[in-house]
Design a protein around this nucleic acid. Sequence first.
DNA 1: AAAACGATCTACT
DNA 2: GTAGATCGTTTTG
Length: 204
Amino acid sequence: MTQWSGAAVLPLAFYQRRPEHVARELLGKLLLRQVEGQLLVGRIVETEAYLATGDPASHAFGGRTRRNAAMFGPAGRAYVYALHRCHCLNVVTEAEGVPSAVLIRAVEPLAGLELMQQRRGTARQRDLARGPGRLCQAFAIDRRLDHWDLTRGEGLWLAADATPPPTDVVATPRVGVTAARELPLRFCLRASPFVSPGPRRRSA
DNA sequence: AAAACGATCTACT
DNA sequence: GTAGATCGTTTTG
């Protein structure tokens, strides 16, 4: 795995900024997971920012609860929650006490594909980590990783590729429940086949 | 104690 | 494109 030795772990300062900025900067970065003696790697191709104030879609909008406690903690930690049968991975941003985060919506699988295929129950590369729930299943991420320190470079962490590919970024307004606000919170790499379907438009 | 609610996914047409 | 499964968390009685 010397191929990833040049990948620099993202430092605390990277996360101590506004979630819109972090979400934009995360595109093209690497998500790494060490599990069962193997290294899983994916390139982040889609993110979503959840603001500390004025964002009705954020879990922190209604105040602090047991579930969303990680969002109120220090930056650079994971906020993992369960939804339906799935889990979703967020990275906490800004200062402690400011509840903002970035949802990792999709990655392009780069290493450890066999284990991902095994965990996902499919061989289709496109379906391994496209969508926040699938991503967590492929990378063996669940609530035990809630509050995990992502800056330590072990278990679960993020890093910058030594030679990242060109990143042509698109920001799109959210659709669905938050459509009324038209917040430009979603970021993805243009033309990446590994982008998730995204939130459904809600039917009245 | 019970009910409602999704930052979703899969299957099917 | 739409429908339904499904379950931990939160809210309400």
